[in-house]
Design a binder for these strands. Structure first.
Lengths: 143, 143
DNA sequence: GTATAATTATTGTTATACTAATTATTATTA
DNA sequence: TAATAATAATTAGTATAACAATAATTATAC
């Protein structure tokens, strides 16, 4: 790679990631979802994978424990998740969706997909595959 | 695009952007640069484009005014930038590098490039062009 | 079996992101 | 020209990100 050109990747990547999150958050707010994008990601994963330790959830989402602790605090305040004591390890909590949380996931999933799709206008499956390959490679290179 | 697959792009994008920034910051800290990645980006752009209003700088960096105000506060605390009153508009400041700031940019530029290059191991110029195309398209779709 | 190490979650601190509100100044309009 | 609108930067408030340090608990080592 040409050194002087590649340097821009980090700037473009950061800029675009911020724009994507910002756009989604604006839509979430405008449509009255009443949660943040990061809170949504936690809800969605809990719905998909079921109850799990904060630990495991953090790993799944590539967030650290303090960050996740605070997101879950807010979700619990909103009655969308609960912390249950772990039966085999009193250091841990099992985090799971409340009924209200599960309902929210069902209601919002198609709306969130529609919001996400907006970014892909004019792009193809092939673009996606190439894009994913580069993102995964970068991630692995720095892991 | 397949709706159920594309949804993952935002997750991958966010995850990778965070990893890239995190890796760079760890290197900055380990190598004693004594600035953050975002502070670096401001210094680098000021070096490239010369003194400008905060306003213009914010637009160039795709950051909002409050965010930039605080970054520049920190850079001024570190004596790397200065705010000068704008000769034609007393609402504005012209922000510019101090001598020390300019020296820092010269010293760190090759080191930062080396850090950034790490992420691109195994990737080609063609990967870069495709990657850039997708990032730019996403950004434009949401602009 | 007790001391030590490792693990889980939390709290504290600093920086960035975004929105809303505020202040000072400049531009526009009636 | 006086009132109003627009603009530049800042401040305030909430959320996320990263790191360090801590408390409670569990695992390991001697």
């Amino acid at each position: 790679m040409n050194e002087s050109r590649y340097s821009s990747y980090s700037f473009l990547l950061d800029r675009t990631a911020r724009r994507v999150k910002q756009y989604a958050q604006q839509q979430f707010t405008a449509q009255g979802f009443n949660i943040t994008v990061d809170q949504w990601i936690v809800l969605k994963h809990l719905d998909e994978y079921g109850e799990m330790k904060q630990n495991a959830l953090a790993e799944l989402l590539f967030k650290d424990n303090p960050t996740l602790t605070r997101i879950i605090d807010l979700l619990c305040d909103k009655k969308l998740t609960v912390r249950n004591v772990h039966p085999e390890d009193r250091r841990s909590f099992n985090v799971s969706l409340t009924k209200e949380g599960a309902k929210k996931v069902q209601q919002l999933t198609p709306k969130v997909q529609a919001i996400r799709l907006k970014a892909w206008e004019g792009l193809t499956e092939r673009d996606f595959n190439q894009f994913k390959k580069v993102l995964d490679t970068i991630y692995e290179n720095l892991a």
